[in-house]
Simulated assay, not measured.
Amino acid sequence: MVYEVKRRHLPYTKLKAFLSEIDVKQKDLAQTLGISNVALNQKINGTGGDFSLEEVRKICRHLNISSDAFFIEPQVSKMITKQV
């Protein structure tokens, strides 16, 4: 039997990959936000509620990242295009 994951919003795959890249554990980020590990994991994977504006601010300050790149338009690559 195949189970389909019910998502409330798109997962934050770019944020998840970045955390792995800089070796920041989800449990540490959850502690920074004052939420449980499970709640953070559900928010990142899109299966729980979405991040609040205050949580986004805390994450961006803590990780020194842009909300545009990781939360507003996470699926859009920041590629430089060459004009012909």
Rank of each mutant, 00 (worst) to 15 (best):
S77E: 15
F51T: 01
K25C: 06
T47M: 07
S67N: 05
A39E: 02
H62T: 11
V5T: 15
K14L: 12
S67D: 11
S77Q: 15
A69R: 12
E4T: 15
N41F: 03
L53F: 13
G48R: 01
V5K: 15
I59A: 01
R7F: 06
F70P: 02
R61Q: 09
K6C: 03
S20R: 12
P74Y: 10
A69V: 13
M1Y: 11
L33N: 03
Q31F: 06
P11D: 04
S52I: 03
Y3L: 13
D68G: 00
L29F: 03
K16T: 06
V24W: 02
N41L: 04
G48E: 02
S20T: 11
I80C: 01
Y12I: 01
N64W: 04
N41E: 04
I59V: 13
L40Q: 02
S36H: 09
F70C: 07
T81H: 10
T81Q: 12
F71T: 04
V2R: 15
L15A: 03
E55S: 08
K78G: 10
D23H: 08
N41A: 11
K16N: 06
I35G: 02
V76F: 10
T32E: 14
V2G: 07
F18D: 01
V76Y: 10
I59E: 00
F18H: 12
K16D: 06
V56H: 01
E4N: 14
A69M: 10
Y3V: 13
D68F: 08
K58W: 00
Q83M: 12
C60R: 05
K58C: 02
L10D: 10
I80R: 10
V5I: 15
T81W: 08
I72K: 10
R61N: 08
Q26K: 14
I22W: 00
I44Q: 04
T13A: 07
R61L: 04
G48V: 05
V84T: 13
Q75M: 12
S77K: 15
I72Q: 06
A17H: 11
S36L: 04
N41K: 09
S66E: 11
L53W: 07
A39D: 02
A17Q: 13
K14I: 07
L29G: 01
Y12N: 03
V76G: 03
L63W: 04
F51R: 00
K25Y: 08
L33K: 04
F51Q: 00
K27V: 14
Y12Q: 03
L10P: 00
V38M: 09
R57Y: 12
T32H: 08
G46T: 09
S67E: 05
S66P: 03
D23L: 02
L53E: 13
G34R: 07
